[in-house]
């Protein structure tokens, strides 16, 4: 329940690359091949542990359709991490990465950690984008890279968690100003618990009218 930090993530990338499936695999540990198109944005949340600290990931899964692009841009603000997803079986989704990256960089804070994800790694036979290409792109643009499969859950945990680790490190290094919520990071109750015990007690009394 209690967490030390909350990180806001966005998942972006072309339609049909498996953004919603990645989220579902990460939050619910299941795979659902058929999905409604995402309208605007959907949400998911999960708790992870890094360095012994509980971190809550609040994930914004955006619509990939071109026509939603101007809307989804509005959602980028205040994200600490982004998963930029392409489909290894569709070259065009890889070719569009530059546009996505520009968009992301333009509409979010400069410190945002971006994880490049080549999804559908289970479909090796239909592969159109080599792993090396993904790696090269990531290196060139300063991104972390991973190939995942939302279907088999391969690397899905790692993708989300490694992004969080990177953010966490940046916090330790002082790159992120954790008091500025525009960075997509918030200090959670666990972290604040020591100096907020007083408030907590007060809160308990206040709620007393409601639940006791």
């Amino acid at each position: 329940m209690a967490y030390a930090y909350l990180f806001k993530y966005i998942i972006i990338g072309d339609t049909g690359v498996g953004k919603s499936c990645l989220l579902l695999q990460f939050t619910d540990k299941r795979f659902q091949p058929v999905h409604d198109l995402t309208i605007g944005v959907e949400f998911g949340a999960r708790m992870i542990t890094i360095d012994g600290k509980q971190i809550k990931l609040q994930i914004w899964d955006t619509a990939g359709q071109e026509s939603f692009r101007s809307i989804t841009r509005s959602y980028y603000r205040g994200a600490a991490g982004a998963l930029l997803v392409y489909d290894i079986t569709r070259r065009d989704t890889f070719n569009h990465l530059t546009t996505w990256l520009e968009d992301a960089r333009q509409h979010s804070n400069s410190n945002m950690v971006i994880m490049l994800i080549g999804n559908k790694s289970d479909l090796e036979s239909r592969r159109e984008v080599k792993k090396e290409e993904g790696e090269a792109f990531a290196r060139e643009h300063g991104l972390i890279f991973m190939e995942t499969s939302a279907k088999t859950a391969s690397n899905v945990e790692e993708a989300f968690i490694n992004t969080a680790k990177e953010i966490y490190e940046k916090i330790q290094e002082g790159v992120f100003d954790i008091n500025n919520e525009a960075n997509g990071i918030k200090i959670g109750p666990q972290h604040a618990a020591t100096n907020a015990t007083h408030t907590g007690n007060q809160g308990g009394q206040q709620a007393g009218g409601g639940c006791c």
């Binding site: 209690a2 109750p189 666990q190 408030t199 907590g200 809160g203 308990g204």
Partner: peptide
Amino acid sequence: EKEELQSASEVAMETDKK
């Protein structure tokens, strides 16, 4: 968040109060 804080401190005694 306030409630989270509360429930965090209450966790030990009453798990389901949240």
